[in-house]
Amino acid sequence: MLGIMYHYVRKSEPDLPSFRYLHADDFARQLDFFQERYGFVDREAFHRSVRTGEPAKGVVLTFDDGLVDHYSYVYPLLKERGLWGLFYVPSGPYRRGALLDVHRVHMLLGHLGGDALLEKLHERIEPHMLIEGSEKFGSTTYLSQQNDQATTHAKQLINYYVRPAFKEALLADLMESVFGSETDLAARFYLTHAQIREMAEGGMGIGSHGQSHTLLSHLDAAAQREEITESFAFLRSLCGDATENSFCYPYGGDQAFNRDTVAILKDLGVSCAFSVEPRSIDVADLNEKYRLPRYDCNMFEHGTASLG
């Protein structure tokens, strides 16, 4: 069984010349490729695999971040083909009326490019704002993404090196200097409540991606529990029993969560959780259930990112 991870699936936006995304036409071509090469795992078979520990044969489609792209381009195509997907939605944007920090980074990179953003970061970041020993993440993060060196370094700097206490203010300042107010931008960026409900009623799995898309491993156990429980509560208020009882780690990888995270998921009765290790899901993964691997879509035919 192969888990495949998607984020942005859209068409060209001239105002974002350096924005990386999977073009909607390539997404359709990739579905054709997966159908021919592997076939797809239906929803019932996926849940049976999680319960029994026996991997089904085929592809499981997963979509992170609750982006409006998923309603505009992904959902119609899946419905047309009789397919389903797991959509992992963070609850934070619906509370704060602004982009999550991870998406602020994407928008800044899309508008400015890696070199210009890195220059602005170096102007603003002081030594005391960095986590001691954070350089270790430089050799383990964003390895499968198709980024230039400056883009990779900018993402590592913001998402792994800067202390959480400084990250919000740093990105808010950058967003204000580049885009002005975020309110309208955020309203257009994410799925609406009605779209989430429609997708759940249409057979899609709507699962939790935490509240603020933060590195859970940087939080104590109490803060992690709040991130997870608040997100599930929000989704259940929209989708009720149709909410998918599974989780997807923000950022993913072993550096993104810890034993506290897994203990909380087990305590809450969450059925499984996805990470980002690029390999197929085997029996051992399904017996563990809380670090299911996924391939990035760009590792397969028709998955090359478009720019701008």
Rank of each mutant, 00 (worst) to 15 (best):
Y6T: 09
E13H: 07
F19P: 06
Y21E: 02
D25P: 10
D26R: 15
F33G: 07
F34S: 10
G39N: 12
D42E: 12
R48G: 05
S49A: 15
R51F: 12
T52Q: 09
A56I: 08
K57H: 11
G58L: 13
V59Y: 03
L61Q: 06
F63N: 03
D64P: 02
Y71K: 01
Y73K: 02
Y73D: 09
L78M: 12
K79T: 14
E80Y: 07
E80L: 12
R81Q: 12
L83D: 13
W84A: 14
F87K: 01
S91Q: 08
Y94P: 00
R95V: 09
A116K: 15
A116D: 13
A116M: 11
L118I: 08
E123F: 08
I125Q: 12
H128R: 14
H128N: 07
S134H: 01
K136Y: 08
K136W: 09
L143W: 00
L143P: 00
Q146T: 14
N147W: 15
N147T: 12
T151F: 09
L157N: 10
I158G: 02
P164H: 10
E168Y: 06
L170S: 01
L171Y: 11
D173S: 11
L174A: 04
M175H: 01
E176K: 00
G180D: 12
S181K: 00
L185Q: 05
Y190V: 03
T192L: 14
T192V: 11
G202P: 15
G203P: 13
G203N: 13
G203M: 09
M204H: 05
G207T: 02
H209F: 09
L215D: 00
S217I: 05
H218P: 00
H218S: 05
L219K: 13
A223H: 06
T229Q: 02
S231Q: 04
A233K: 02
S237M: 09
C239T: 13
D241Y: 03
S246F: 04
Y251V: 07
G252E: 02
F257A: 02
T261M: 06
A263H: 07
D267F: 00
D267C: 02
G269M: 12
G269N: 08
V270A: 08
V270G: 10
A273H: 04
A273Q: 05
R279Q: 08
I281D: 03
D282N: 10
D282W: 04
V283K: 14
D285H: 13
P293A: 07
R294M: 09
Y295N: 04
N298Y: 05
N298L: 09
F300G: 07
